[in-house]
Amino acid sequence: MHKAAALSFASIAIISGGLISCGNNTDQVQVATGSVAAESAAKTAQSYSKARAYEAQGRSKKAAKLYDKIASDYPMSKEAPDSRLREAQIYYETGELIDSFEKYQLFIEHYTNHSKYSEAIERQAEVANAASTGKIKNNFLGLKSEIARSKVETMFTQVRDNAPYGKTAPIAQFRIGEMWQNDEDYNKAIQAYEDLYVKYPKHSLAPEAMYRVGDLLLKQSQDGNRNRGNLDTAETTFTDLTLLYPNSKQAKLAKQQLKNIAQSDISRSFSIAEFYEQKNQDKAALFYYNEVISKTKPGSEIYTRAQQRISALKN
């Protein structure tokens, strides 16, 4: 069923992960209280400095492993948040996008009140976008392959759900639709675009998403999936677009599409009338010629032709 007629914001649960206590038993108690032992604080500071030095030397892999150890073993230390961010960035720069995405996710889940939380949300969205357009490293040999589209969709969905009312959410939703459209999986693309303008009807991408739904439905009605239902739904979508976003450039395009659909309907009716006339089914032919008359202006070429055929069949 077409969704544009009843737009509403969807309620999306915000996932917030709990802090994970790791390391030895002494530190576990102190992590729970929001602090680390003095000995552990000195250790994490030393490890962080060492990881930074590895980065400066171009030894990214060793730096990433050390950053991971800091963030995993001492998540409440002052170095942990930056360690997780640095680790995620290293994986991004080396093309290991899935690892980068997952490390940003760990930061987002554990440090919601951190000053760099919004930055992490945006950087994770960049990673998902990169994953949708390029190749990634997927094993220890550094070999590259295309990432599965279902995985990319999961990444964009995570970006959207991490901050469902933030600026990255509707963009991520649009990218899901665009990704499936580029892959010519039009049913999935239509669903993703519909979800965007239903959940984010006031976003600047909503008119474009709605136009693309209509355009893809129209394409399906013209290509292999020839059925009147797709054409009718496309027409409804374009009509809704002109009503909901009358001042958008997409509304102007939708009006042109509606004219094209109307003209196509008239031509189709005339062709059906000719078919029935050739079969000597005059009653059916007259019905469709009269339909052409009802949809066209007097004096137009097709109106005149239909009128002539009606007169001939009645005589």
Rank of each mutant, 00 (worst) to 15 (best):
M1C: 08
K3A: 15
A5I: 06
I15W: 08
G18D: 09
G18T: 14
I20R: 10
S21F: 11
S21H: 06
G23F: 07
N25P: 03
V29T: 13
A32Y: 12
G34Q: 10
S35D: 11
K43P: 00
T44G: 01
Q46R: 15
K50S: 12
A51N: 03
R52K: 15
Y54Q: 15
A56Y: 08
G58A: 08
G58C: 07
K61F: 08
L66V: 08
D68R: 14
M76L: 14
S77G: 14
K78G: 06
L85D: 13
A88R: 15
I90V: 15
Y91Q: 14
Y92D: 10
F101E: 03
L106V: 04
L106S: 07
F107E: 03
I108S: 08
I108V: 12
E109N: 10
H110F: 12
Y117D: 09
S118M: 08
E119A: 07
I121M: 10
A130M: 09
A130V: 08
A130H: 04
A131N: 03
G134L: 11
G134A: 11
L143M: 09
L143T: 05
R149C: 02
S150Y: 00
K151M: 01
F156H: 02
Y165W: 01
K167G: 02
P170D: 06
F174M: 10
I176K: 10
W180G: 04
W180M: 08
Q181S: 13
N182F: 02
E184P: 01
D185P: 00
K188G: 01
L196I: 05
V198C: 01
P201H: 07
K202W: 00
K202E: 13
P207E: 06
E208F: 01
A209D: 05
Y211I: 08
L216G: 10
L218Y: 08
K219C: 00
Q222G: 04
Q222E: 14
D223W: 03
G224N: 09
R228K: 12
G229L: 09
G229D: 14
N230F: 06
L231C: 02
L231W: 01
D232L: 15
T233P: 00
E235K: 15
T239I: 05
L241N: 09
L241T: 05
L243S: 15
P246T: 06
A254R: 10
Q257P: 02
K259C: 01
N260I: 02
Q263M: 08
S267H: 04
S269Y: 07
F270L: 06
I272N: 01
A273E: 02
Q281K: 14
Q281T: 07
Q281N: 14
K283F: 06
A284M: 14
A284E: 15
A285K: 01
F287H: 04
N290K: 12
E291G: 01
P298K: 09
G299R: 00
S300W: 04
S300Q: 12
Q308C: 02
S311P: 00
L313G: 03
N315T: 14
